[in-house]
């Protein structure tokens, strides 16, 4: 187990380093381009050369990368070109906003999809199962921007229940949060529910469930004690990996609802070629993704005695 943990952590660090190197090469190999982006297209060649000299851009790529990595490890990604402030000052509040959004999405999505998935998987082929499955396919087929349009049309344009934008400029507001959360849950719950259903349905056909039933155990015991424990191992991993998906989803939703979060920031940075901000955002995204994946792997191993005790 210890070896496994060390391995996973080492892999996490290696992934971060490889990704950062690729990112660095992608964005900063062309130093003149960097200077142009920082100083603007109307800067003179001398200005750019001076800036490059002063900021150490004439050093070899490897040296620059190591310096960048050392700074990044301390949380220093340089100054944002667009906001003219250190990247951290822009990034952290935005990240916090996205964390709030993500928390609510998960708080709604996990219980909803697990309950529906288990109910559907318990009786494979029943009417309930079929309706849940088809609902899942339909909601997963509507891209976030489309469901944002549909939900806005209903709740903003027609029912006038929620505001059309969610900038949260006057502090935290449930009414502003409702639509972004709904859009993200709608898109994702179907996937998780279908995974849970598949896992549960598979467990229900195993010989050990037959053994449990033929032992004369009450149906409740069969489900709660024998089936769920095995059926929820797979969805656990799936749910953890949804954090990764959420980082993609928030880009669209935050952009649509003008929510001041991490996704909107990344998009803005990319569209404006704000390279230091892009680097910071990408590193944060990868860190979150890799960390959840590591937790998922470790958790899976822990939940599964067949792997835990070998």
């Amino acid at each position: 187990m210890l070896v496994f943990l060390t391995k996973r952590l080492a892999f996490m660090v290696i992934t971060m380093i490889v990704v950062s190197a690729l990112l660095f090469v992608l964005l900063e190999i062309d130093v003149d381009g960097v200077a142009t982006k920082v100083l603007g297209p109307y800067s003179s060649a001398e200005q750019r050369e001076l800036w490059l000299e002063r900021n150490g851009y004439r050093d070899p790529l490897g040296e620059r990368y190591l310096r960048w990595l050392a700074n990044a490890a301390r949380g220093d990604f340089g100054d944002s070109i667009r906001f003219k402030t250190p990247v951290g000052e822009v990034l952290w509040p935005r990240l916090w906003n996205t964390a709030i959004l993500g928390f609510w999405v998960f708080a709604v999505m996990i219980p909803l999809s697990l309950v529906l998935g288990v109910l559907a998987g318990m009786r494979e082929g029943s009417l309930l199962d079929r309706s849940i499955s088809i609902t899942g396919i339909v909601t997963t087929s509507v891209p976030e921007f489309a469901s944002a349009v549909f939900l806005s049309a209903i709740f903003v344009f027609w029912l006038k229940l929620f505001p059309g934008t969610s900038s949260m400029s006057d502090g935290f507001s449930f009414r502003e949060l409702a639509l972004p959360v709904m859009v993200l849950v709608l898109y994702d719950f179907g996937y998780v529910a279908r995974m849970t259903r598949a896992s549960m349905a598979e467990v229900m056909t195993t010989p050990y469930i037959r053994t449990a039933i033929l032992k004369g155990l009450p149906y409740r015991t069969v489900i709660l004690k024998h089936a769920l424990r095995n059926a929820l191992i797979a969805p656990f991993t799936v749910i953890m990996l949804q954090v990764n998906w959420l980082l993609s989803g928030v880009i669209v939703v935050e952009f649509f609802f003008a929510y001041k979060g991490f996704g909107a920031l990344l998009l803005e940075a990319s569209l404006n070629q704000d390279i230091f901000l892009i680097e910071a955002c990408a590193m944060v995204a990868v860190f979150v993704a890799v960390a959840t994946q590591t937790i998922a792997d470790v958790g899976y191993t822990y939940l599964n005695p067949r792997i835990r005790f070998t």
Binding site: Y208, T211, P305
Partner: peptide, 16 residues
């Protein structure tokens, strides 16, 4: 009425 099965490994719950 009790039953004994062909594949004992599959008949036992792996996580209990």
């Amino acid at each position: 009425i009790a039953m004994i099965y062909q594949e004992p490994f599959a008949a036992l719950n792996p996580s209990l």
